[in-house]
């Protein structure tokens, strides 16, 4: 069996909350996201259709939330590996995210575990992200799993995950 890689220094992150970050949901950013995913639903891009819909105005695609990147924790996670993979996401939606909303994003580090696989030892980090709108309503939550593995030249992008 390989040595366990989870250290006490990593485990202190369990239960930690990140610094909140607030984003304005901008019309241009929503349209750009809709084009990038190739979903040209007029509710995301067409003012007139959206205004006459049951939403009464433009909304963001469900996974637009992914672009509202959460803030960092008080200190950097002592990441032992160089590469990352996304393990999956689980969203619960409570209220639509509308163009013009102000969304405050916070994440909590909920779980850490390791597994052996074809990539060698993999570290799994589970975080729960909360998206609260300007009315104080939780618009959505996202539970997301990040997998890291391997040693090599590290990409700085890894520190934002």
């Amino acid at each position: 069996m390989p040595e366990p890689i989870i250290t006490a220094e990593m485990l202190v992150f369990t239960g930690m909350d990140s610094m909140p970050v607030t984003y304005d949901v901008e019309k241009g950013a929503v349209a750009k996201f809709a084009r990038a995913i190739g979903d040209l639903n007029p509710l995301y891009i067409d003012d007139l259709v959206a205004r006459n819909s049951s939403y009464g105005g433009l909304i963001a695609p469900p996974t637009f939330l992914r672009s509202l990147i959460p803030g960092r924790y008080a200190k950097p996670f002592p990441e032992p590996f160089s590469y990352v993979l996304d393990g999956g996401s689980s969203y619960t939606f409570f209220a639509p995210v509308r163009v013009g909303d102000r969304i405050t994003v916070t994440r909590r580090f909920v779980e850490l575990f390791e597994k052996q696989g074809k990539l060698g030892t993999m570290l799994f980090r589970v975080q729960e992200i909360k998206y609260v709108n300007q009315h104080g309503e939780v618009a959505a939550t996202q539970r997301t799993t990040t997998i890291s593995y391997g040693t090599g030249q590290r990409d700085p992008a890894i520190d934002d995950l």
């Binding site: 995913i37 996974t63 996401s89 689980s90």
Partner: peptide, 22 residues
């Protein structure tokens, strides 16, 4: 996940609401 969301929201239509996606 965005593709899957498009599949589901497109099917559910304008007055359908996506509650959960994993």
């Amino acid at each position: 996940s965005a593709f899957v969301a498009e599949l589901v929201t497109g099917w559910a239509g304008e007055t359908g609401r996506l509650l959960e996606l994993s």
